[in-house]
């Protein structure tokens, strides 16, 4: 799920960025540094939506660089175990569910034995996350479609 949260970060700035546009420089550096990153704690930082406040800078010993504590609001995406969400199929591999059959070919897909349901690339499915693994730069999830009201929600082939 997506969340709107307030995060804090210490920004280090070279003295050449000081002056009238100091604030803009801090904000644009923050966006470059933070947007698109992922941490296990807060998930993927999708977009910064506002700056709450920029604290007093502290000159670092010996370098002349200044550190500013910045509080900012952002949109993050963080999946959780137990969450139900909708997703697009990007790849079909051979981990076969019991009641479906794997069909290889140039459009690999899963089809139920009676042929009524087909899951292939670009299908939309509703799934429940049953496990997450958090890495320094990525989050991996395992989901299931084996429960009530889960499974394919649209079929690109039928549309």
């Amino acid at each position: 799920m997506f969340f709107h949260i307030v995060l804090e970060r210490n920004m280090q700035l070279h003295p050449r960025h000081f002056g009238r546009s100091l604030r803009e420089n801090i904000v644009s550096k923050l966006m470059k540094d933070v947007e698109g990153t992922c941490s296990g704690r807060h998930g993927f930082v999708v977009a910064i939506t506002g700056i709450e406040n920029i604290g007093k800078g502290l000159i670092r010993d010996g370098t002349g660089f200044v550190t500013f504590p910045v509080k900012y609001q952002c949109v993050v995406f963080r999946p959780f175990k137990g969450e139900i969400l909708e997703a697009v199929v990007t790849m079909v591999n051979k981990l076969i569910p019991d009641d479906m059959e794997f069909q290889s070919g140039d459009m690999p897909n899963y089809t139920t034995s009676d042929g009524s349901v087909k899951i292939q690339k670009d299908s939309e499915v509703r799934l429940k996350i049953i496990g997450t693994r958090v890495d320094a730069t990525e989050i991996f999830c395992i989901g299931t479609i084996k429960d009530d009201f889960l499974g394919v929600i649209n079929d690109p082939a039928a549309a």
Binding site: F2, F3, H4, I5, V6, H42, V76
Partner: peptide
């Protein structure tokens, strides 16, 4: 984090 959930 006092996060606020957002709908898609």
């Amino acid at each position: 984090s006092k996060a606020k959930c957002l709908m898609n």
